[in-house]
Amino acid sequence: MTRLGQIFLGLILIFLYTPIVVLMAMGFNESELYELPFKFSTRWYSALSTNTELLTSGFNSIVLAVITAVVATSIGTLAALALSRRTFRGRNLLQLLLLPPIAIPWLITGTAMLIFFFWTGIGRGMHALIIGHVALAVPYVVLVVGTGMKSVRADLEEAAMSLGSTPIHAFFAITLPLLFPSILGAALFAFAVSLDQFVISYFLSSPGYTTLPVQIYSAIRKGFTPEINAISTLLLLGSMTAILIFARFAKPGAPK
């Protein structure tokens, strides 16, 4: 019985990783038309290094992910502090309001943003993408930092105050150092959320400013070469690294 279970888990892993491995391998295959047998070549990575369209959008994606991580982590951490340390009316409602950006299909959120940004004159492009990505990342930051706050007991701050700390000093001397791993974890999480985001970006990017996933999508739709495999491989490795580092700082498996 144990053997059977392990074999089943092996099959699940094969199912999960086969396409990813095939995708990565095809980036190293000579044939432009993905023809087999496999013949090793790095020509697609060389080609990639001169493909300004893909490189620019990749650069855009990284910049966007960094901005998203910084902004979402800052404002999300503040909200998490209030939600976990203060009691006030409407706190449960505010916690509930974190769910729509996570739970509503991105297609709906994305098209709603498109309408609203168009209607108010905010428009599309980098600033619109920042607004959208931060909004998607903030709830995760609040959840991750809020979980971290649970491990920083309120009586530590009280102990500091009984010894003469003002609330602000207690926060910087006690709470912040203890919370730091959670905040770093939340930032990595926000980075990954932004880097992997396609649907929202698809509706909010402008012809002059696209992200890598949007560029990959239009390539898939219009015709593509294994260069796409090469850049996809880099993207996958990037977010896998971010998540593995995150897993070291916080527990893996937060709800998506």
Binding site: P19, V22, L23, I216, Y217, L236, S239, M240, I243
Partner: peptide
Amino acid sequence: WTNGLVRVFSWTMV
């Protein structure tokens, strides 16, 4: 936690 679009694309190869 990796890019959903890329994973869907990878299935076309398979």
